[in-house]
Amino acid sequence: MTETTPTPSAGAPRKLRFHVLRHDPRDPHSVPGTEVFELEEAAGMTLFIALNEIRENLDASLAFDFVCRAGICGSCGMVINGRPGLACRTLTQDLPADITLAPLPVFELIADLSVNTGKWMREMSEHLETWVHSADGDPDLRRIEAQMDPDLADSIYELDRCIECGCCVAACGTARMREDFVGAVGLNKIARFALDPRDARKDEDFYELVGTDDGVFGCMTLLGCHDVCPKALPLQTQIAFLRRRMARTGLG
């Protein structure tokens, strides 16, 4: 999507037209609609740079979220020309001159391009108890740490790289239909804790959390999640693996 080299194009810079979906749900007079902003493209321009330029020069009230602007915090998920992605690391040169921006669906709209992913993720975390359930209580911190196989640690990190940006949920067919579906983000977390020997929970415990249609059995295997994940997490494999494991547990 955004993997080409940023080379300054020859000739006059392009005129970009940003078609931005705007709405303030708390304003009784606000009607959802598209507003068009025109901007001259610059070399190396990302959507982070473009949106800030729009806010500085064209409309100071435009709402959107950025934090790290480096592709690591997951704040700036939005629908870019129909596809969920991280705006901060999307270069305009990889897009046509007409760029449509919309807030991520599923999540509560705050205003314009800003949605409340934080609230959704916290509820998901509380529901799935996404923390290590230690069997031994607090360790003696003065003692040498427990050993862990280096490859296993790497495998856990592979799944731990999720940044909770919400792109997988926005790209999910089930999430549109089932309000309580935990999404690929939730299923990936369960896969992560199931892999972690420090978590004392058994398959039966995980089954209680995701062995339902709001969990792993709700997935229709459309795998939009896998296609859009900005961190390229192995969601397809993890969901398939978890489903087999949970089906086995359920049939017990």
Binding site: V132, R143, A146, Q147, M148, D154, F193
Partner: peptide, 19 residues
Amino acid sequence: APKAVRELASWGVPWSRVR
């Protein structure tokens, strides 16, 4: 600091490990 690393290890941080 060493106690912090060890606490975080018990909280699930997947520290890279020695081979």
